[in-house]
């Protein structure tokens, strides 16, 4: 199992690191989320989780290292990590496995669920943990 996971992990960590360290994500995020006062890593986590669970886990590691595991941002990151799923991966894998190409509103509904979950957890974190 290990030898199938590691190359994937390496590719993901590498590509995500390149994207983040190049400043591109920061630039995009600063344009899109100028009004939200969340750290860049958290917004990257929200943006990455639907694409890749392992990359999100790597980002979570970064957040824990940078802010300390019991800080507010780490707690917020933990709830976000816990309440979302690797949506794109699941949809691609599940429907792909039975040869279905017309997935209709599957992706839309799943992403809607993720957004609702993220908003709820951010709200509750600010209410109960801040």
């Amino acid at each position: 199992m290990g030898y199938t996971i590691f190359p994937n992990l390496l590719a993901m960590v590498l590509s995500v690191n390149v994207l983040i360290n190049s400043g591109f994500l920061k630039w995009i995020v600063s344009i899109l989320f100028n009004t939200i006062s969340l750290p860049i890593e958290l917004i990257s986590l929200i943006a990455t989780k639907p694409i890749s669970g392992s990359a999100a886990l790597a980002l979570l590691n970064t957040i824990f290292n940078k802010y300390g595991v019991d800080s507010f941002y780490s707690l917020l990151a933990s709830t976000i990590q816990g309440c979302t799923d690797t949506t794109f991966y699941v949809i691609a894998l599940y429907y792909g496995s039975v040869g279905i190409k017309k997935t209709r509103y599957a992706l839309f509904n799943s992403l809607f669920g993720d957004v609702v979950g993220i908003l709820t957890s951010i709200l509750l974190c600010y209410l109960w943990l801040k």
Binding site: L75, G82, C83, D114, V116, I118, T120, S121, C125, L129
Partner: peptide, 22 residues
């Protein structure tokens, strides 16, 4: 972490809300 399970309750509520809405 001094309290590794601190966020569990919030995660539970958020996922229940997300499930109901979807």
């Amino acid at each position: 972490s001094v309290d590794p399970t601190k966020t569990v309750f919030i995660t539970l509520i958020s996922t229940v809300v997300a499930t109901i809405f979807s």
